[in-house]
């Protein structure tokens, strides 16, 4: 809900912007929601253009970010409701989905969501095998076997007493 209050010219009238994903789909977003992203806010302040093209964010990820922004721009929702929305927002999401979300929210500078997603990713990474992490992030191991063994030996206690998971 956008009201004509002292929030300044940007939110004075219910204006909308169009955001286009890298797959070409367009989303109509209220300006009050868009400006919750620091990057989008900067673009809107710099130019009159009502169409913003995000060449690196796909449809699915963009739709999720916009759902988040619209919920947080809704003045009718209490902070408690928004907090529980945030928790539900990340729960049950695949690690793969979260990876794209964390990058998109970092690019769009949606600090709060970026933090929440990073925390959820860290929760999933808990007690996982190093091989699992490498696979999920698609990382090539650049250690020599000797160098890796040496690091494992230095803090052997971090590996010794727990069952680590591989899925």
């Amino acid at each position: 809900m956008v009201t004509t209050d002292e929030k300044g010219p940007l939110t004075a009238k219910k204006k909308s912007v169009i955001i286009r994903s890298c797959d070409g789909d367009e989303f109509l977003v209220s300006e009050s929601a868009a400006v919750l992203s620091t990057s989008l806010k900067k673009i809107l302040e710099e130019k009159e253009d009502r169409l913003i093209h995000l060449s690196d964010i796909d449809n699915k990820t963009l739709a999720m970010v916009i759902a988040y922004l619209s919920t947080h721009a809704d003045d009718g929702l209490s902070d408690d409701l928004k907090r529980s929305f945030d928790q539900e927002f990340v729960s049950g999401k695949e690690f793969d989905v979260l990876k794209y979300l964390v990058l998109a929210t970092d690019t769009l500078q949606v600090t709060c969501l970026c933090y929440t997603v990073a925390k959820k990713m860290a929760d999933i990474m808990k007690n996982k095998l190093v091989e699992w992490v490498r696979r999920e992030f698609d990382i090539q191991n650049d250690y020599t076997p000797e160098a890796e063994a040496e690091i494992r030996r230095l803090d052997a206690w971090a590996w010794d007493d727990r069952q680590l998971e591989d899925d």
Binding site: I43, S55, D56, L103, T107, F137
Partner: peptide, 9 residues
């Protein structure tokens, strides 16, 4: 796992 980047910022 590519980093997304805003072209306009």
């Amino acid at each position: 796992f590519h980093a997304c980047r805003l072209t306009e910022t």
